[in-house]
Design a protein around this nucleic acid. Structure first.
Lengths: 344, 344
DNA sequence: GTGAAAGCGCTAACAT
DNA sequence: ATGTTAGCGCTTTCAC
């Protein structure tokens, strides 16, 4: 093995076999224009020399790095972690590697992430747009590079890219209908910030379910605003302050749901008998709390693999005639103790 | 901009300015052997032409790809997700990108992951060794490539690589001492599989704490075996079957702890008054259950950033004189309701 | 301070 | 079926 590099090259193999680099290349890549005998010999020799193709060199030559980039607000969040997991698994099966960038929900970091991935010449980029992003010029850079751009979770129609999302409205509707089927008639709703599309859609699903079942909408039952941890606690207080009676809660977030549950339990309210609760997202903790929290499965892992599959599909389409696609996954509700009433 | 590529190159810039590629390269890289004037001109022109350095080309030339690889069993697990998060954040600050591979705890997948990262010419690899890995030859390939190899979480002394871990024994000891301070004297312990080093160390910490405080070891209080979700439930049953009395549990896993808590609550046992409980790992759900579960903070995010920092340090050391380092982080206990007794 | 030239390891026309 | 050649975009000696 030559001193200058830690790795053997196709030239080393060629030399050892009295061949040329191109023949070795052909043999290694199973190019038909090579004899079976040489192919064998080359592969054996490669094995013997611990040859490992240099993807950097191949990438420079072919323009294909075999790298997929993903930009997320924060890797350390169950939903995104599952997406990464699904994405990596499928991408890897097709020989692709996955490169990750976090934005911390910062617009500046998102811009840098785009540049970083483009510098690395990734073959495609998946993005969950940062909450603080209002300007989308940096995504044009991806389109200019003529590589697939796929948005997921927080998407932006303005960008005009492919999307992989779940049907939030449907999920919310199923959740609300489930509560109705449990006999609940006064269903409160923690709505989340409505300028974020996923929350808006979930609220829409709630309203649609009410309408479908002939229940009237009572604005006193709906609490807008953030649906983070503490806000579930505050939202319950708000309902009590309003003096409104309710026999169920559909929360657009598991976190708010869980804190609502804690609040109600302190008040001596029985769950699900007095108030049935269902959340949204299927966070890992939902099956660990008492009572276990019903929720809507966001299919994060499936989202990840769907992103990967869309990538693989788009990469093989001529850049010019790549049309933005929209893949919508159908969520399912997961019914647990927090909403399972004994129907009399 | 030339037709063949979507990107402008240093040649394009050079041509536009009547310079040569090498001067442009120097200007862009702030090489001192260039005049301030040209540097300015080049940078302006680069900006104007939307120039984006091709890291693949640079990487081929210099051997430095600016990529760090990380191999984990599963991205979708809170502990690993946090490590990725911390690693990416710090690495990115120094201009490095992070490439991820999952093994699904499979030995074969781990071997492939090593090869995949090596083919991509990453500048270093961090690994949490798969549970099924008993043979370590594939890690030699990383050493042969003369790039830093850093083990974390599940480490293997046999491999002779740098390590970033937390002091499991200390964490377990602190947890156990905390229970003792709460007045507990008959402390049960869910020990986990002892052939896995982290569990062995946690059990050691438990024993050390008992000894330090003059409590005798009662083997009936210790339940060996897996510490997964359901096993916490089974472990409590085992204690009852043994007819042993206990006033506290130190579980080497939050999952087992939470299921133990559920089991005890069903039996009408009050927590923490009858039995105080503390787990290990600071899983996200621990603060959401009722009562909130005390635990040992594994500092996953810090682990990730420590890995990144060690990388950055080792990368700048001549390969030959890189000595395996061992970085040990000190865990802290997080005291919540599940173990906080009102001391009389 | 700038240019010329070589080459990183690979692939892909184009020969033969 | 194999060899020759050129070049992907960049950095880096070596000249001047």
């Amino acid at each position: 093995m030559s001193k200058k590099s830690e790795h053997s090259t196709i030239h080393d193999i060629a030399q050892a076999l009295g061949l040329t680099a191109s023949s070795v290349s052909r043999a290694l890549n199973d190019n038909p224009r090579i004899s079976e005998a040489t192919r064998q010999a080359v592969k054996e020799q490669a094995e013997k020399m611990n040859y490992r193709p240099n993807l950097v060199a191949a990438g420079l030559r072919t323009g294909k790095t075999g790298i997929l980039g993903i930009i997320i607000p924060l890797a350390n969040r169950a939903f995104f972690a599952s997406i990464i997991s699904g994405l990596e698994r499928v991408a890897n099966q097709s020989g692709y590697n996955v490169m990750i960038c976090q934005t911390g929900d910062s617009y500046e970091a998102e811009k840098s992430a785009v540049e970083a991935l483009l510098r690395a010449r990734v073959e495609g980029v998946a993005v969950s747009v940062s909450a603080k992003t209002l300007d989308f010029k940096h995504f044009d850079r991806i389109k200019q590079a003529k590589i697939p751009l796929i948005l997921f979770d927080r998407t932006m129609d303005e960008i005009g890219a492919s999307e992989v999302v779940i049907d939030d409205r449907l999920g919310a509707m199923l959740a609300t209908e489930h509560l109705i089927e449990q006999g609940c008639r006064r269903i409160a709703h923690f709505a989340g910030l409505q300028h974020i599309s996923i929350y808006k859609k979930r609220t829409k699903g709630y309203l649609d379910a009410l309408e479908k079942h002939g229940l009237s909408y009572d604005e006193n039952l709906v609490v807008f605003g953030e649906v983070k941890e503490g806000s579930g606690d505050a939202a319950v207080n708000t309902l009590y302050e309003r003096g409104v009676s309710f026999d169920a809660i559909f929360s657009s977030s598991d976190f708010a749901a869980i804190w609502a549950m804690k609040n109600l339990q302190k008040r001596g309210v029985r769950i699900p008998d007095d108030v049935a609760i269902i959340g949204f997202a299927n966070e890992p903790f939902t099956e660990l709390v008492t009572p276990a929290l019903s929720t809507v499965n966001q299919l994060a892992d499936d989202l990840g693999s769907a992103i990967a599959n869309l990538f693989l599909e788009e990469i093989n389409v001529k850049k010019e005639q790549r049309k933005p696609q929209k893949i919508v996954l159908m969520p399912e509700i997961i019914v647990r103790e927090s909403s399972k009433r004994v129907i009399r």
